[in-house]
Each structure stands twice: as C-alpha cells, then as structure tokens.
C-alpha cells in the first residue's frame, strides 16, 4: 500500500465537484421527501378507511424494498413506458420518495403526540379550525419533529453515493470514475470516507445543538 499525495491533489478538484453535487441532491431530495411525506401522512390519517389503508400499503412497500432497486426501476423500467428521466432526476425522485415514507411517520407521530385535551380546549375556546391548527396544534407538534427530520436529512446524505449506480456523478461517482481510470482505489475511497465522516459529524453536532435549543424553550 503506498499513499500518493500527488494523486490526492490530482483528484481532489473532481471530488469536490462531486461533493457539491452530493449536497445539492441531498437538499433537493429533502424538500421532495418533506413535501411528499406530508401528502403520505395526510393520506395515512385520512378518515376514509380505503385511502388510509392504501397509503399504508404503498408506504410500507416503498420502505421495505431497497433504494437501489427503486432507482433501477425509475432509471431502466420507466423509459419502457415512455418516461425518460435523467440520472440526476431519477436519483432525486427515488431518494425523495424513499425517504418521504420515513418522513410521513415523523409527521404522524408529531401530530398524534399532541394531547387530545388541546384539541378539546381549542374547541371549548371557540377557535376556528384554522386558528386551532396555526395557534394551538402546529406550534406544539412541529418542534419535536425537527430533530428526527434532521436525522433523516443526514441519512439521505449518506445514501446519495448509491446514486452513482445509475451513473450520477456525485462524490462517489467521481471517486469510482477516477479509480476505474487509474486503478487506484485507496486514495479516492479514503477521501470520500473522510469527507462523509466530516460532514456527518458536523451536521450531527448541529442537530444536537438544535435539539438542546428546543428542549430549553420547551422547559
């Protein structure tokens, strides 16, 4: 094993380029996951038994199959029925949809954990539906949701390298392209691992800080 700093400095620019793509994918997919997750959560809590049952079935099916297979499905099967997605779009849709099922559980748990008495009190105070939601329920439901949502964003960040399997040039895609070109695996993979470790540790620290902040306000 011989570590070459020359090679490291040679590949660093393209890896940084890949890191940028990884961060972009994470951010856009997070927005997709949170929006679609809201939709799933509303469907799961629907008063209509059929809607809620179908929503549970769909989300469980997505949750229990591998992301990689879902990505292949979006990337290879959809073109057969005329929907051609670029690798990047397929990756964002796949990642966003996969995590939307996790996020929907966070929303659901957050809402269920607001005590029933709060709803009854809002009704007793003669608040309108809109007032009940914006003044009473959401302010209590949202803060506890933030740490788990943050953790899922970190989890998504760590899943983005899978997108390199459908030829997205994220940090892992760039690293593998370099490795295939020079047949040196040690430096690219070590650099990618270090990059991930660095970003995850930093973001985990930020979330812990956020959590403490929220606990302080609640106390």
């Amino acid at each position: 094993m011989n570590w070459s700093w020359d090679y490291v400095s040679e590949i660093t620019p393209s890896l940084l380029q890949g890191l940028l793509v990884t961060v972009q994918i994470t951010l856009i997919s997070s927005v997709v996951a949170m929006a679609v997750g809201l939709f799933f959560a509303i469907a799961k809590m629907s008063a209509n038994r059929w809607i809620s049952r179908i929503a549970v079935m769909v989300t469980e099916a997505i949750r229990r199959t591998p992301l990689l297979v879902q990505l292949y499905f979006l990337f290879y099967v959809l073109p057969d029925i005329g929907i051609v997605l670029s690798p990047l779009v397929a990756g964002i849709v796949g990642l966003g949809l996969h995590y939307a099922t996790y996020v929907s559980e966070v929303y659901r748990a957050g809402l269920i954990n607001v005590p029933k008495g709060q709803w009854e009190a809002a009704r007793a105070c003669n608040l309108t539906g809109r007032q009940t939601w914006t003044q009473i329920i959401l302010p209590q439901a949202i803060p506890p949701m933030i740490p788990p949502l943050g953790n899922y964003v970190i989890a998504m960040f760590k899943e983005t390298p899978i997108l390199s399997a459908i030829t997205v040039l994220d940090i892992m895609g760039e690293a593998l392209a370099q490795a295939n070109f020079s047949y040196r695996y040690l430096e690219p993979i070590t650099l990618v691992a270090t990059g991930f470790l660095f970003v995850s540790l930093c973001s985990a620290a930020v979330i812990r800080l956020l959590e403490n902040q929220l606990n302080l306000r609640a106390a």
Binding site: P161, A193, L197, S200
Partner: peptide, 17 residues
C-alpha cells in the same frame, strides 16, 4: 458517519491493498 456504500467499496477494493 461514513456511508455504508463507501464502507462496502473500502472492504472490497481497499482492504486487499
């Protein structure tokens, strides 16, 4: 902190080195 995907590639491509 390091993605499982990266670990897998490290186990297969880097450990032999």
């Amino acid at each position: 902190g390091t993605s499982v995907f990266v670990q897998l590639f490290a186990a297969y491509f880097v450990l032999p080195l």
